[in-house]
Structure formats: C-alpha cells, structure tokens
C-alpha cells in the first residue's frame, strides 16, 4: 500500500476582480499535479479563470475555542458599519 499523498486546498477566482473562493481539496504529490487536478476537478464548467492551490499543512486556521475572544469584540462595534449612522435627508454622495 502506497503512502498517503498530500492534500491541497483549492481556491478558485470565478471572474477577474473577484476574490478567490475555497472550492474544496485535491490530492497530489507536487504543485504541478495539484494545479492540474484542481483544474480538472473544479473548473469543468468554466467556474474560474484563476486557481490557487495551497498544501493543507500550510494553512493556519483560527481555533473554534478562541472565537469568543477572536471575533466577538467586533460584534458590538457597530460604528464600523456605515448603516450605523443617521444621515440628514437629502444629503447626497455620502
């Protein structure tokens, strides 16, 4: 039985100007194979114009246990959202 091959996470940019979105993963032994496998698996229906592949082991993720301190503080700072402010009627371009 052969060894496990690396898992690569795949990110596809569907249209120029848009961000790359996570599409899933592929197995491959090197980056060229990873790109080809990602292209064959995730862009058969013209879903994208650009592919990024990243070895899964290179991804650093925030921990679910930390989401309290990591994310909640941004939850009560509504003043970061433009909808928080009341604008005078009739004011344009603001």
């Amino acid at each position: 039985m052969s060894e496990n091959t690396d898992v690569w996470e795949v990110f596809i940019q569907s249209k120029n100007g848009l961000p790359h979105k996570h599409a899933g993963s592929v197995h491959a032994t090197d980056k060229e194979m990873a790109l080809q496998n990602a292209r064959d698996l995730y862009t058969r229906r013209k879903e994208g114009s650009s592919i990024w592949v990243v070895k899964a082991t290179n991804i650093v993720a925030s921990q679910a246990e930390d989401s309290d301190s990591f994310f909640d503080p941004s939850d009560d700072k509504m003043y970061r959202h433009p909808t928080f402010y009341t604008m005078p009627d009739g004011a344009k371009n603001i």
């Binding site: 060894e3 496990n4 091959t5 898992v7 899933g24 592929v26 197995h27 698996l41 058969r44």
Partner: peptide, 18 residues
C-alpha cells in the same frame, strides 16, 4: 468528481483517503 468532493469532505473528519 463527486467521489472526490465526498472523499475530501470525509477527510476533514480525520480519516485519510488510503
């Protein structure tokens, strides 16, 4: 392709394709 998507999803649970 569907097999691959599903194996990928399954692997996130801590099991390898092999």
């Amino acid at each position: 392709g569907h097999g691959l998507y599903l194996y990928s999803a399954c692997e996130t649970l801590g099991v390898s394709r092999e």
